[in-house]
Amino acid sequence: MVKKVCDFWSDDAVSNLVEIKDVRFSRGSRMIFNGLNFSIPRGKITAILGPSGTGKTTLVKLITGQIRPDDGVILFEGRAVCPCSRQRLYEMRRQIGVLFQSGALLTNLDVFENVAFPLRQHTKLPERLIRQIVLMKLQSVGLRGAWEHMPSELSGGMARRVALARALVMDPKLIIYDEPFAGLDPISMGVIVQLIRETNDALGITSIVVTHDVAQTEILADQSVLLSEGVVVAAGTPAELCNDRSELVQQFMRGKSDGPVPFHFPGPGYVEHLRALASS
């Protein structure tokens, strides 16, 4: 009997929290993923690497069910993310925390209320308990003292730490960090790296770090997945990726400006282009 996608159950769900199986996705005529396959093991930090425009953020949207793949299946805890009912999707999302690049704090609420927001929406906990949980989460990101601040009063790094506290407040099984190191000064970056590691180890959760910061990935990640041209081109520990002989992997890991990922955007030759402009 043919199994419906929504009834799909993976036997690997015990070891892998998220499984991406033969996922294809395109925007218009542009193919973003062309048969993507990899798994996110439980309790580990997995870095998803790739040059800009490879679809890393699109992958986050696929995993969280914000968009649907054209083909293939994404499993969270062994169950298909899409297609499923809105209720089930929201149930699944309650087990996932997402840290946006901008923090995406609700600007009309102060720090305390931002962190308390998911608890107020999804639980009927007494106010006293909510206060204790929120202060505990803010303490864990080092911002308990800023509980009365508004988001506009926070630096970029502080906003991300508050967003991390908010992502942790429902004790999720998976946390997805979307470009957590972008635009941070070295101190804030060090703080975020430490927080991701400590959070992952202390709470036993699974983390996905979507980034193109190779240096931080080497320190932080248990495994890395390098995406390019819609497929996984390399996967393994950061050390294994650094030693990979593939030209593409070497270009990315060593930050070379030219290589398999060309410096120039595809187009006609420079001389022909100038001649064509001159003759027109």
């Binding site: 914000q66 999302r93 997402v98 946006f100 901008s102 995406a104 704090l105 609700l106 929406q121 999804h122």
Partner: peptide, 10 residues
């Protein structure tokens, strides 16, 4: 991304 954040907080 506040609206996306709400959706992802279910």
């Amino acid at each position: 991304e506040q609206i996306s954040a709400l959706e992802l907080m279910a």
